[in-house]
Design a protein around this nucleic acid. Sequence first.
DNA 1: CATCTGACGACCG
DNA 2: GCGGTCGCCAGAT
Length: 109
Amino acid sequence: MGWEVIFGFVKRVPKGRVITYGQLARATKLRGGARAAGYAMAACPKGRGIPWHRVVGAGGRILLSEPRASLQRRLLESEGVEFRGSRIEMEGREWFPPKPRKRRPRAQR
DNA sequence: CATCTGACGACCG
DNA sequence: GCGGTCGCCAGAT
């Protein structure tokens, strides 16, 4: 196996939320760090329902090259993700996997 | 087996 | 804010 763990993880990112390559790498304890996460996404198999567009660069930057960058932006905006300039408004949009915790102590903001 | 090829990010000047 | 350095993986040819 190679990147399967990454793809499976990306599939869990909810609509309207995003995750960065760096987080992806840390969350899956990927050796090779963020770069490896990037390599993985580059090899992301299409047609498996993987929300690839929810994976963004650190600081909310779109790292793809055209025309994919525009497509990603469009897809994200259609999910309600806001942009400020060329950056994604990351406030509260960054997603992290649910911890094996008991439950949400209270409503989030 | 040798090379090439990509969706990264932290750090520094 | 911009550009360069460095560490880094897996699949294809």
